[in-house]
Every structure is written in C-alpha cells, then in structure tokens.
C-alpha cells in the first residue's frame, strides 16, 4: 500500500489512537483530511473511554478479606466429609454384598454365571451329571459308586434325583471334553482374581472412608475453635 494514494484502514487508524505515528503515517495524516478526521475520532473515543468515571466502590474489601484470611484453613477432608461418608457407605454396602455372595456359594470362590449358576442351584445333580461320567471315563467307575451312593442318601427337595442318578445316561448327554472343560476354566480364575481384587479395594476404601469421613471430623473438628 502506498500511503500517498490509498487511505489507512480503520483498524490501522484505531490502533494509531494510542500510538505515536511514524513519519510516513504522520505525513499521510497531514495530507489526507479523510484519514485525519477518522484518526481524530479514534483519539477522541480513546480519551473519552479513559475519562470514564470508575464505578463507585460498594464497600471496603480490605476489611472483609482480612477477616476471611484470618480464619483457619479448613482441611480437604472436612470440606468433602459428606461425599466421603456417602462413598464409604456405598463401598461398605458393596463389600457386604460381595462377601455375602461368596458365603452363599461356598467352596467355589467364583461368581456364578450362565449354566454354572444353574448347576450350582442344584448341587446334587451336578455331582451326578458331571463327576460320575468323568470318573468313569478315567477308568475309575468302581470308585465313583460311593459318590453316587452318598448322593442318593442325601435328602433333596427334588424327587427326581434318585432316578437321575440311577440312569445317568438316559437323562444326560454323554460326557464330553466340553463338559470337563467347564469344571476348571481360566475365566473362572480371572473371576476369582477380580473378586479378591474388588474385595481388597472396597475394604481399603471403606477403612479410609471411616477414618477420613467419620473419625477425623469427630476428633479434629476445625470449626471448634471458630465457634468459641
């Protein structure tokens, strides 16, 4: 842009309102009435803004802030004590539920899923259906007999169990490797690990929550000094 032939843009002029113009710009402003007029408007605007009276101060903030900073700083566990308490109760509830479920299925140590859950609901039938053919397949048919016997002697709610035990082949499919693989699965181990991990985590959260959310606020109330 040559300053002699073209006008300055509004943004250039606006910025020049608070800056000392260079020699070339100054020459242009002296020779171009239009640019000079607009520039003067920006100067007037800027000076009118500078002269705006400040809003009246509603109060002295120094006093209020002195009072605020004189108060003892409240620790984080006191500020969040209600959230901590709610979290602790939730963690404790989950922990109780997990432990109850473990007690409801003793010995398995696993969370029942799908077919296994159904089987666990009728433990006698599992013994008859899964263990007996497995042992027979392994050439231990004679050894399996006492197991079947004891299962027959066990009083059950279902009257069909003895007949099931007497004729396992009629009611259940032939034992396969698939059935065997359901007894011990890597996924079950993973479930056990997850279960133990969850119990550990929830125990730690519960204990910490009890300490931070209940005991500490009880023993070291930071507002006790303020209320005095």
């Amino acid at each position: 842009m040559t300053l002699e032939t073209s006008h300055l843009t509004d943004e250039q002029l606006a910025l020049l309102a608070s800056e000392v113009p260079g020699s070339r710009v100054r020459e242009h402003l002296e020779s171009c009435a239009e640019c000079r007029s607009r520039w003067q408007q920006y100067v007037a605007l800027q000076q009118a803004l500078r002269a705006l009276p400040p809003p009246r101060l509603p109060r002295d903030f120094a006093l209020a802030i002195q009072t605020a900073i004189a108060l003892p700083r409240v620790p984080w566990w006191w500020r969040h004590r209600f959230s901590i308490r709610v979290g602790t109760l939730l963690a404790a509830t989950l922990l109780v539920m997990l432990l109850s479920s473990a007690l409801a299925f003793p010995g398995s140590g696993e969370w029942p899923t799908g077919k296994r859950a159904q089987e666990q609901a009728t433990p006698n039938r599992i013994t008859a259906v899964t263990i007996t053919p497995t042992l027979a397949e392994a050439g231990m048919g004679g050894a399996a007999a006492p197991v079947v016997q004891s299962a027959q002697e066990t009083p059950t709610l279902e009257g069909s169990i003895p007949s099931t035990l007497a004729r396992p082949a009629e009611h259940s499919p032939a034992p396969t490797n698939e059935v065997k693989s359901q007894v011990v699965q890597p996924r079950d181990r993973l479930m056990v690990v997850l279960f133990l991990g969850a119990v550990t985590l929830l125990s730690v959260v519960t204990v910490l929550g009890i300490v931070l959310g209940f005991l500490l606020p009880l023993v070291r109330d930071p507002q006790r000094g303020v209320h005095r």
């Binding site: 400040p54 809003p55 101060l57 509603p58 903030f61 120094a62 802030i65 002195q66 004189a70």
Partner: peptide, 17 residues
C-alpha cells in the same frame, strides 16, 4: 495481614471496576 490489606486497598477499585 496488614501488608496484604494495603495491597487490597491499592487495587480494589481497579479490580472492582
């Protein structure tokens, strides 16, 4: 605290405006 109060007095008008 008094030093900070002086800083507040110095700039409260500006900050509020």
């Amino acid at each position: 605290h008094e030093a900070f109060a002086e800083l507040v007095r110095r700039y409260q008008r500006l900050v509020y405006a």
